[in-house]
Amino acid sequence: MKNKLLKYGIFIIVLFFAFQSVVNIASADDHYKGDRYYYPKYEKSDKNNYFEKFDKHDHDDDDDDYKWKGEYEQEGNYKNLQQNTVQPSYWNVWTRDTHISISNNLPVEEAKKVSFNLNGKTEKLLVFPSNGQLLVSGEKMAKLFGIKSKYYEQSRILELSNGQEELIVRAGTNAAYENMVKTPMPAKALSYEKTVYLPISVIANAFGYSVDWDEANETFILEQFY
Results as ranks from 00 to 15, higher is better:
Thr183Glu: 02
Gln83Trp: 02
His31Asp: 14
Ile10Met: 10
Ile200Trp: 00
Asp61Arg: 06
Ile203Trp: 05
Phe220Arg: 05
Met1Ile: 12
Glu153Tyr: 07
His57Glu: 14
Asp35Ala: 11
Tyr197Asn: 00
Asp61Trp: 09
Gly172Pro: 00
Asn77Gln: 15
Ile147Trp: 01
Gly34Phe: 05
Glu109Met: 12
Tyr39Lys: 04
Pro88Ser: 03
Gly138Met: 06
Lys41Pro: 06
Ser103Arg: 02
Lys148Glu: 15
Tyr8Asn: 15
Arg156Leu: 13
Gln224Pro: 13
Ala18Pro: 00
Ser161Val: 07
Gln74Phe: 15
Glu123Pro: 11
Asn84Gly: 07
Ser155His: 00
Asp55Lys: 07
Pro40Val: 05
Tyr152Glu: 05
Ile12Leu: 12
Glu215Tyr: 06
Phe16Asn: 09
Lys56Gln: 12
Ala175Pro: 04
Trp68Gly: 06
Trp68Phe: 13
Lys2Pro: 04
Ala26Val: 09
Phe220Glu: 09
Ser45Gly: 03
Lys33Asp: 12
Lys44Met: 13
Val136Met: 08
Phe54Met: 12
Val136Cys: 05
Ser89Glu: 10
Thr183Cys: 08
Leu5Cys: 07
Asp63Cys: 05
Tyr42Lys: 09
Pro88Cys: 02
Met141Ala: 03
Tyr38Trp: 15
Val127Ile: 11
Glu153Gly: 01
Ile200Cys: 01
Tyr37Asp: 08
Val93Gly: 04
Asn84Cys: 12
Glu153Ser: 10
Lys194Gln: 13
Leu160Cys: 04
Glu193Cys: 02
Asn117Gly: 06
Thr219Lys: 07
Gln154Trp: 01
Asp64Pro: 01
Lys44Glu: 13
Gly138Tyr: 00
Thr122Gly: 10
Leu167Ile: 01
Phe116Cys: 07
Asn80Leu: 15
Tyr32Gln: 05
Asn105Tyr: 08
Val211Phe: 09
Ile12Met: 06
Tyr177Ala: 08
Lys150Thr: 06
Ser155Val: 08
Gln87Ala: 05
Lys140Cys: 03
Lys113Asp: 11
Asn92Arg: 04
Phe16Val: 14
Ile100Trp: 02
Glu165Arg: 14
Pro88Met: 06
Asn24Gly: 14
Lys67Pro: 07
Ile157Pro: 01
Ala171Trp: 00
Lys112Ile: 05
Ile221Pro: 02
Met1Pro: 11
Asn77Ser: 12
Lys112Asn: 02
